[in-house]
Structure formats: structure tokens, C-alpha cells
Simulated assay, not measured.
Amino acid sequence: MLLWINGPFGGGKTQTAHEIQRRLPGSVVCDPEHAGFGLRRMLPPELRGDFQDLESWRRGVVEVLDLALGKHDGVVIAPMTVTNPRYFEETVGRLGELGHDVRHFALLAERETVLKRLRERGFGHLLQYVAGKDAPLRRESWAVQQLDHCLERLREPEFAEHLWTDHTTVAKTADRIAVLAGLTLTPNKDGVLRGRLRRAWTGAKHIRFD
């Protein structure tokens, strides 16, 4: 089974994917973003744009996930924002056409909720402490620019199943996805502090500087 976790940038995809992986024995996170940034780095700066526009990324994601789904004995989790309907069909749709059990979930939230999460990503809490809670989201400027478009597009029926996350935790979102996919997660034994530390560490590991 493939769990494709969609959503706006800063919407909690990566945190949710790793929460599921932590509590679902045998599962693995295969992040399509890694391939995208690798292709982007191959190009001179003036030619770098949205790596999803590269056919090589879309075809490569399908090839790699098809291999993982065919050879790995466990659930594969792919956290990736895709809002272009054609690109969605060429990736998520194509994997379904290849015969895989694909479960797609779009994590949605109100604009202010996502902006708050963007401020808290990685070392965001430290930035707020040093520069104040209204410190500008300089490193997240691209995500902010894409936010309204992402939230509008992902509300469309073709991007179901929709999960609203404004008033829920990462662990509970993972639980909801598991129920909808017919999976059983191990109980979440994290307390509030341990959960925050775990999410901060996950966020820090996924900070990109390009």
C-alpha cells in the first residue's frame, strides 16, 4: 500500500508521515522531494525552477515508488505536495494504474494555521525567541507565496481524501489516516514534551538551505 500525504507546504505532511512510520512496523518513508532537489541542484541557478515541471521528476518518482512498492514488504509513505491536476495524474494516478493500492490524503488547514506552523518549522521557535513572534518568514517565503494557491487547489474533489488539521495533533492525524486506510498503528505513548521534541527533531532534519 502507498500512503501519499499531500497538503500545503508547512501543512504537516512530513511530520505526519514520520509519525505513521514510527508507529507502523515495516513501513518506510520515501520522500519524492529528495529526487526533486537532486535534479534542481544539477541545473545552473538561472535554470532552477519548480522541479515538478521536469518530466524526469514525475517519471522518476513513479519508477522509484513502483520499485519500492513491488519489492518492499510493508507500507510505503510519500509526503509530497502536488496541486497540478496533470502532474497528480502522472504520479499518484499512474501508480494506481500500475496496480498499486494507493491511498491519497490531503492535509488541509486555515491559512493562519499553516503560517503559524511555518514559523515553528525547524528552528522556528528559536527564531521567534530571538527576533519576536512576528519575525518574517524569510526562509519560508516560497512556501508562503504558494500557500493560497495550494489551499484553493487541494480543496478540489480530485484531491480527496481531505483531512482538516487545524484543531488536531500530528499523532491524531496519523491515527485518522490509519483508520481510513485500514491500518493499525501502535499506541502513541509520547507525552506533550516528548512529542514536541520529536517533532522539532524531525523538522530540524528536514531543513534545506537551498
Rank of each mutant, 00 (worst) to 15 (best):
G7T: 09
R194T: 12
T81Q: 11
Q21K: 12
A78C: 08
D101C: 08
F9G: 06
R40L: 15
A143G: 02
K133G: 07
D134S: 10
C30W: 08
L69K: 01
G124V: 02
A135T: 10
G11K: 02
Q21E: 15
D53Q: 15
A109S: 14
H162D: 10
V82R: 10
R119H: 11
V76K: 02
L69D: 08
V28G: 01
A200P: 02
E19N: 05
H104M: 08
H34S: 13
Y129R: 15
Q21P: 00
A200V: 04
P45C: 02
W57P: 00
V28P: 00
T186E: 15
M42I: 04
D31F: 04
T202Q: 07
F88G: 06
K172G: 02
G203C: 01
G203S: 09
E152D: 14
S27A: 14
A174I: 03
W201S: 13
V144M: 09
L185Q: 15
S141D: 06
H18P: 04
A68S: 03
L24C: 10
T184C: 08
P157T: 07
R153S: 12
R48D: 01
D66T: 00
Y129N: 10
P187S: 12
E112K: 07
A109W: 04
A174N: 03
D53S: 12
P79C: 11
H125S: 08
A78D: 06
F9E: 09
Q128M: 11
D148H: 08
V179C: 03
G203H: 07
W57M: 02
P44S: 07
L185M: 14
A78T: 03
L193M: 12
V170W: 08
A135D: 03
T173W: 05
E33K: 09
L185K: 14
W142V: 10
R155T: 03
V144A: 10
L197S: 00
T202M: 09
D50L: 11
R23N: 11
V92S: 06
T168W: 08
L43N: 01
T202N: 09
L108N: 04
H167A: 11
D190A: 09
V82L: 15
I77L: 07
L154G: 08
T173G: 04
M80R: 13
A160I: 00
V179W: 11
R86W: 12
G26T: 05
M42D: 08
T14I: 12
R59M: 14
V61T: 15
L197F: 03
A109D: 03
P25T: 06
R138K: 13
G99Q: 00
K189D: 15
P44V: 03
N84C: 14
G10Y: 01
I177F: 09
T202H: 04
A35W: 11
H167P: 00
G49H: 10
W201V: 07
C150N: 15
P8I: 10
R111Y: 06
Q21W: 01
P136N: 05
H206G: 01
G182W: 00
E89R: 15
L185C: 15
R59A: 13
L126Q: 04
A204Q: 06
H149K: 14
H206M: 11
E112C: 05
H100Q: 15
G36N: 04
G182Q: 01
T184L: 12
